[in-house]
Amino acid sequence: MAEPIKIDKEALSFRDEVLNTPGGEHLLRCFACGTCTASCPVREVDENYNPRRIIRMTLLGMRDEVLRSDFIWHCSTCYTCSERCPQGVHLTSIMRALKNIAVREGIIPEAYRMQAKSIRAMGKIYEIEDFDNKKRARLGLPELEKKCPDLEAIIAQGELKDLK
């Protein structure tokens, strides 16, 4: 059987952590009506996904369970919950804040790591090769820069500097 959930200082510190992360500001507005879950297209096809549950777990200070959960990476960022939330919780932004915190803890899905790597090295997710520019020329489309060194400079000075 599950243990009772203790809401102690440590639990409350997770709330503060989310509240202080960009996007997490409106967490405490939630009154758990479930409009988010009822509107969620991911929930529609997978009952394991439940945005209200993630918000409740966050409010109850279940830091590890939330940050290690696949759920936070399964938000499709469609904003339907945010639009319909009667309390203006801005769930899509909270999901983003939770993912940002997970990344600070070193939790990052491989697909995102690969994308970040490409963006840092080339400026884009998909490489523009000579082949692409030749094809673009044939189609009458203008040439694009193949690699953009600016992104290495921008990423290297920020929070993701160690992500390579």
């Binding site: 960009p22 996007g23 990476w73 983003r96 804040a97 993912k99 940002n100 990344v103 990052i108 995102y112 994308q115 970040a116 963006i119 997710i125 921008i154 990423i155 920020g158 929070e159 993701l160 992500l163």
Partner: peptide
């Protein structure tokens, strides 16, 4: 967009 999930400021 893909980076916002990892770090908003970046």
């Amino acid at each position: 967009y893909p980076i916002s999930s990892l770090n908003e400021m970046t």
